[in-house]
Design a protein around this nucleic acid. Structure first.
Length: 374
DNA sequence: CCGAATGAAAA
DNA sequence: TTTTCATTCGG
């Protein structure tokens, strides 16, 4: 079949003022913004997307969908009726989430040019865990998109003015990756990095709330994570395998996610005390290790129900992506590879026994620039 | 429509 | 390598 080209040139783009066409995401929108009931191709998002982390404790319909009750995106890009929008990339997903989260923290309306900047800063400040998470989300959306529009091929409009406007992209190396912040100006007067250096105390303020205060206030930070990953169908079939393309890019770094519960930081790109580095499962073959990196210590905060046996606790496999599994019948410790070989059948554990505090929500919120001074 | 960001994909 | 376009919505 001929590929369904995305025919949307700059000219034909704006046809009428209102079109029914921007509900393209209507169908798969809930994939982005929430729990998707649409059959999960890979696996449901193992990480709650912003809204769920902030508003709904679990999977409810209290999802914030852009076109749901909203006054409708009046400024949504209008396109020709048959236009198929591209799937959003990781950053765009991140930005959307950032936007929603920020919106509910600040009443006033935001200039989205600034939102974009802030989101970018947050993006660079965020841990690899979070970025990977959004990469996964984007990847999933891409697959959904492919399913929904088989044969879709992105075809950008005419490359007008190869020489005139070819200056869109600003310096990409203008970032202080040490501080994870843009090095030079960009923001009015001061750089975030500068402000942080000058006022270290502002760091706690930057968070907008103190961790302690948060724990008392935000009870839903304690979510039963990954239950979504426990849907019956996924249960055994594609258990541990993060699908090839969604596989974590850098297992090693992923596995270094700090787990210190008393000090929940997420700057896992930096130095991490050896004691906090989860030990790897050395039994796994290199191949397997790459596809399904396991950590004995969860890359996120976990608490067990009081009654949970130590055996159960030890038997759990944690994956950097937030999923967790335990040997089905075996009460045996994970490293008992001696017997069953390497193909241990993995089964989701009883999610009642374990509760996760999603680090994502906490970190994400911490990324919001409350003290922005634009 | 433009902008402001990053990244995927096409030219 | 360079350009478009994904999101979002005030300017």
């Amino acid at each position: 079949m001929p590929p369904v080209r995305n025919v949307a040139s700059r000219r034909s783009r704006r046809l009428s003022t209102q079109e029914p066409c921007d509900d393209v995401w209507e169908d798969c929108g809930d994939l982005l913004y929430s729990d998707s009931d649409a059959e999960p191709t890979i696996s449901e998002p193992t990480f709650p997307v912003v809204h769920s982390a902030v508003t709904s404790p679990k999977r409810t319909s209290s999802v914030v969908h852009p076109s749901a009750g909203s006054p409708r995106a009046s400024h949504a890009r209008q396109r020709s009726g048959d236009h198929i929008p591209r799937p959003p990339n990781a950053f765009i997903c991140f930005r959307s989430a950032y936007c929603l989260l920020e919106k509910q923290k600040t009443d006033g309306q935001r200039d989205h040019r600034i939102v974009s900047k802030d989101a970018a800063i947050a993006w660079h400040k965020s841990s690899k865990t979070v970025r990977t998470k959004y990469k996964l989300i984007a990847e999933e959306k891409k697959q959904q998109h492919a399913k929904m529009y088989p044969g879709y091929a992105y075809s950008p409009g005419s490359r007008r003015g190869s020489g005139e406007k070819g200056k869109k992209r600003k310096a990409d190396d203008d970032w202080d990756y040490e501080e994870r912040v843009p090095r030079s100006k960009r923001r009015g007067s001061q750089t975030v990095a500068q402000r942080l250096r000058e006022a270290p105390a502002a760091k706690s303020k930057r968070t907008g709330y103190s961790p302690s205060a948060a724990s008392s206030t935000r009870k839903r930070s304690r979510v039963v994570a990954a239950p979504s990953a426990l849907s019956p169908e996924i249960e055994r079939a594609e258990t541990p395998e993060l699908s090839p393309n969604t596989s974590v890019e850098s297992p090693d770094s992923e596995l270094r996610t700090p787990v210190d519960t008393s000090h929940p930081t997420f700057d896992d790109d930096d130095f991490v005390p050896t004691a906090h580095i989860p030990h790897l499962d050395l039994d796994a073959t290199n191949e397997n290790k790459y596809l399904t990196p396991r950590v004995s210590t969860p890359p996120f905060e976990v608490s067990f129900e009081p009654g949970t046996s130590q055996q159960t606790r030890d038997a759990i496999f944690f994956y950097p992506d937030g999923t967790y599994y335990a040997p089905s019948s075996a009460p045996s410790p994970i490293d008992s590879s001696s017997s069953s070989g390497e193909d241990i059948e993995l089964m989701p554990i009883n999610d009642k026994e374990v509760q996760f505090t999603d680090p994502f929500a906490a970190e994400f919120e911490s990324l919001i620039h409350v003290d922005r001074l634009d």
